[in-house]
């Protein structure tokens, strides 16, 4: 029996917004979420900004004339590969330089910490803690499971677009996503 069919629930996905007609407008609509995804994957502001800028540049250079509905999977696919490249380079650099000890320190950086806590301190504290918990849980996932969760659940791409962005089949997306959901449910038991 297909594992994905058993474990993959009908998730309440993000509301699919219409894709803007110009590439400039599309990138403006997606840049904040792209930065948060890159920040989560890289744990570093400068690297995240570099990855997002590079993805924007490549989309402009190579896919500017493609139909607008192709931009989301293309953009997220480019960004996903860029993040993976930077993670690999960083790993090689750590090995070469011998900074193995600093890897743990970077992993402890909480992701998605809201800059503006808002007027309610208790709500801000809860939100900050929830963001940190979610960031840690996502960073603990295997890379492909994390990518499937980010693209399918948080970004709201459909299965086909997620598969295109990840460079795999629809079935693989469902399998990665169901495993990610199970792992996150275990990691975030406090949320229940």
């Amino acid at each position: 029996m297909n594992l994905a069919a058993v474990l993959h629930p009908p998730l309440p996905l993000a509301h699919a917004l219409p894709v803007p007609v110009t590439l400039e407008a599309f990138l403006e609509s997606v840049q904040r979420r792209a930065y948060r995804v890159a920040e989560l994957g890289l744990g570093n502001r400068e690297d995240a900004l570099d990855a997002v800028q590079d993805a924007m540049l490549r989309l402009h250079q190579h896919y500017r004339l493609h139909p607008a509905d192709e931009w989301p999977p293309l953009f997220w696919g480019i960004l996903r590969r860029r993040i993976t490249d930077l993670q690999r380079r960083r790993k090689v650099r750590r090995i070469v330089v011998g900074w193995i000890g600093s890897a743990g320190a970077e992993d402890d950086v909480p992701a998605w910490e809201p800059a503006d806590p808002g007027p309610d301190p208790l709500r801000a504290l809860a939100s900050r803690k929830a963001c940190a918990d979610l960031g840690r849980a996502l960073r603990a996932l295997p890379r492909r499971q994390r990518e499937a969760f980010l693209l399918r659940v948080l970004e709201g791409l459909d299965v086909a677009a997620t598969a295109r962005a990840m460079g795999c089949s629809d079935g693989s997306v469902k399998t990665h996503l169901s495993r990610a959901m199970e792992a996150l449910r275990r990691h975030l038991e406090d949320w229940q």
Partner: peptide, 19 residues
């Protein structure tokens, strides 16, 4: 799963709004 996905998405949107 639904609750987890909905809450994660809400946090993601909130974090993306507050940069």
């Amino acid at each position: 799963h639904d609750a987890l996905a909905a809450r994660a998405r809400a946090l993601f949107e909130e974090a993306s709004a507050h940069i």
